[in-house]
């Protein structure tokens, strides 16, 4: 049952969303082909979640339109909902229901027939490694397992397009790798995946990405090309001693600026390959590092880094 004749999965036309004085999405024009793994890449607050909600027809745009699997988000929202799977940024399943009860609930809502169920349940529980936890309450699962359960529920009706809103936030590296392995398997089945992320390593894994800032897509291209244009490489580290770590890191060579966000540091560096050296010096100094990832710098990050460079006199005009 293919509803659209072309090979376009997602198409938006001058899509706009305004909240009061705040323009969250600025006239978005975007096209995603079937079978693509498209990444919506940008820093926090860029408008990624709003775009996700508009495209999944759970939010009404201020103006413009979008077609998902050939159906308009304006008046064919319910037809879209039959054909897509969506995983919201915040865990959206019932924590007081078991893994199996959650999956069955969504199978019922999507009208999966009793005949198809056993095979699908087995496949979804199998690839997500949730089989041993079938009877566990969803609220008692780890972050990584919750994400996989969310994915299983979003896939129960074999959707044409899968929307994932920052699916790996707060998930450990091993689970993250598993998660992406599952996504690649899905691509083989010709599912279109539309994912949003603030992490560079995930952006690199997409077939095509759109770089978004303040509600506007700055460019869409292959990941390697966009990375070049980002300019300032940036890494994020998590450490319990963030304050002392910041003091220490800012003294290191090749570090342009350090910003602290809770127990995370955003470190702008001169060249990407300096990351290893910085990590080494942190560890030698005795800091316990809980996670390290290259991230998409926000314009603020780039701005701060630029100002810092000018103050240091290391950059010309």
């Amino acid at each position: 049952m293919n509803s659209s004749e072309t090979n376009v999965a997602i198409k938006t036309q001058n899509l706009r969303k305004v909240f009061g004085d705040n323009v969250a999405v600025v006239g978005l024009d975007l096209e995603v082909k079937k079978g693509e793994l498209f990444g919506l890449v940008g820093p926090d607050g860029a408008g990624k979640t709003t775009i996700m909600r508009l495209l999944t027809a759970i939010m009404t745009p201020t103006s413009g339109d979008a077609w998902i699997a050939g159906h308009s988000i304006l008046n064919e929202g319910e037809a879209i909902k039959e054909r897509i799977g969506y995983m919201s940024q915040r865990f959206g399943l019932y924590e007081d229901l078991t893994v199996m009860e959650n999956i069955s609930f969504y199978a019922d809502l999507y009208g999966v027939s009793a005949r198809e169920r056993p095979a699908r349940f087995e496949r979804l529980l199998g690839f997500s490694n949730l089989t041993p936890f079938k009877e566990r309450l969803a609220g008692n699962l780890s972050g990584g397992m919750k994400q996989k359960l969310g994915l299983a529920c979003a896939l129960i009706h074999t959707p044409e397009i899968l929307f994932l809103d920052e699916p790996t936030g707060g998930v450990d590296p091993v689970s993250r790798r598993d998660f992406w392995r599952i996504l690649y398997d899905l691509l083989k089945d010709q599912i279109t995946i539309f994912i949003s992320t603030a992490y560079l390593d995930e952006a690199e894994r997409c077939t095509r990405i759109g770089l978004i800032h303040r509600g506007a897509i700055l460019m869409t291209d292959e990941p390697s090309r966009i990375k070049e244009t980002l300019g300032t490489p940036m890494i994020e580290i998590s450490t319990p001693d963030a304050r002392e770590a910041r003091e220490f890191v800012s003294t290191l060579a090749g570090v342009r600026s350090v910003n602290m966000y809770g127990d995370r540091l955003h470190i702008a560096i001169e060249k990407e390959d300096l990351a290893g050296a910085i990590m080494d010096s942190l560890k030698t100094k005795g800091f316990s590092i809980e996670g390290e990832r290259a991230i998409i710098p926000s314009l603020e990050d780039v701005f701060i880094a630029t100002v810092k460079r000018q103050e240091d006199g290391t950059v010309r005009g």
Binding site: T56, A57, I58, K81, S88, G92, Y94, E95, Y110
Partner: peptide, 14 residues
């Protein structure tokens, strides 16, 4: 409040 509504309204349930 619990964030389950966002998931629920993305399904075809009427």
């Amino acid at each position: 409040d619990r964030g389950t509504m966002e998931q629920l309204i993305s399904t075809p349930v009427k």
